[in-house]
Design a binder for these strands. Structure first.
Lengths: 217, 217
DNA sequence: ATTTGTGAATTACTTCACAGCA
DNA sequence: TGCTGTGAAGTAATTCACAAAT
């Protein structure tokens, strides 16, 4: 789905699993666990041990043979790989149902990535806050993104506006976008766009149902 | 990510693209377009023409050589494949930030799949409605799912409760689940679970940023 | 004794290239 | 001629199987 002007050659699928490992590793570290095997980790994240070891091997050797991994240490390594050692600011464009939910959801967990700027076209929403972050007018987007040095953004606007918003974001220096609008959104070279279409995912689900078999003609 | 007790052998990736084609085809049909080539369709959905033709070929031959596809007809065929010819009822478990947003979001577009039952553990929420659908107590879940013949569900509860909810859903006859909680959620044979962890997706995004390169040590 | 790290084998998915048909 | 449908080729991702390390 996403694409990028390739530099190294590490599978996108592997990158997307790393944060899952990270979450479990942080839980283990918090519980005082000082060693975990790829098998134990696999049981908790729902992938295979081989896959975990392979994913990690793209970046180096972080375990001890015959023993396993130190959750705290491996967690730190993964944070370094992903670039989550310092809190990463994210822009949210669109404070509708979904955007608002994402903003509130983000507050509860996951301190590594924080929505630090919210923009909306609707002047009735501008000035209001979601979890302490004020909604700013769309006009101020580029200025605020540059001021905060924001490199990541979430698009949660209606489909018709999505590409225009993406273009403006990329112009303002944003390099990675999570797009929730149902639209193709072409990424420029050196830029990464991950599209998540929730209603489309829901429709695809229907295929795996026996209702389908009955309805098929 | 998802898995299933295989019957046929059609790539999951292909299935997940079909609803994207469907959305564009319905737009075209509504605009009175009576023929579209795989190349034109590809430009609109952001995939390649070959991929579209290949995906469709798994299910049959729906186009006219030298001409293209009839949007209305192909749309109907895809609906049949997915099992979206009749409105599909979906259960939503968890009426928190995300669940509520999904419910409201679902009302606006996509009539093929409709959230027709909402459940929450919190008795303060029970009795209230989201877009005309009343929130029911978690206790009534199985009863209501069986009564409505629901086969699809969305899980938007905290991670600790997710597996228990999934088990209860599957016991009640649900065959496909879209899970938004960060948890492994093992699917039983004959059942399909698609996991979408939004905050994890956001964290993965950081990798594709130049901030990462600077932070790496 | 146990578990990592990794080349090799396998499987899944995509792209190519062209035959088949309107 | 023009575009679909599809085997063949190529690429990407996963799983296997075992040597290396402690």
């Amino acid at each position: 789905m996403g694409n990028r002007g390739s530099e190294f050659r590490i599978p996108e699928a592997a990158i997307r699993r790393l944060p899952v490992y990270l979450r479990v590793l942080e839980e283990l570290a918090e519980d005082g666990v000082d060693v975990v095997s790829s098998a134990e980790l696999a049981a908790r994240v729902g992938f295979t041990p081989e896959q975990i070891r392979k994913d990690l091997a793209y970046f180096g050797a972080f375990g001890t043979r015959g023993v396993g991994y130190d959750p705290a240490l491996l967690g730190l390594k993964i944070k370094r790989i992903l670039g989550l050692t310092h809190e990463v600011p994210v822009a949210l464009v669109g404070a509708g149902n979904l955007g608002t939910a994402l903003a509130r959801h983000n507050l509860t967990r996951h301190k590594e990535v924080r929505i630090s700027a919210i923009f909306d076209r609707d002047w009735d929403k501008v000035g209001k806050s979601i979890g302490g972050v004020e909604i700013l007018p769309l006009e101020d987007m580029e200025k605020e993104i540059r001021a905060q040095g924001i490199k990541m953004a979430i698009i949660a606007v209606p489909p018709g506006e999505a590409q225009a918003v993406a273009d403006r974001l990329m112009d303002a220096g944003v390099e990675a976008i999570l797009n929730f609008s149902p639209a193709k959104l072409q990424a420029r070279p050196g830029t990464y766009i991950q599209n998540i279409d929730l209603m489309t995912e829901l429709q695809a689900l229907a295929y795996y149902t026996t209702l389908r078999t009955a309805a098929e003609g």
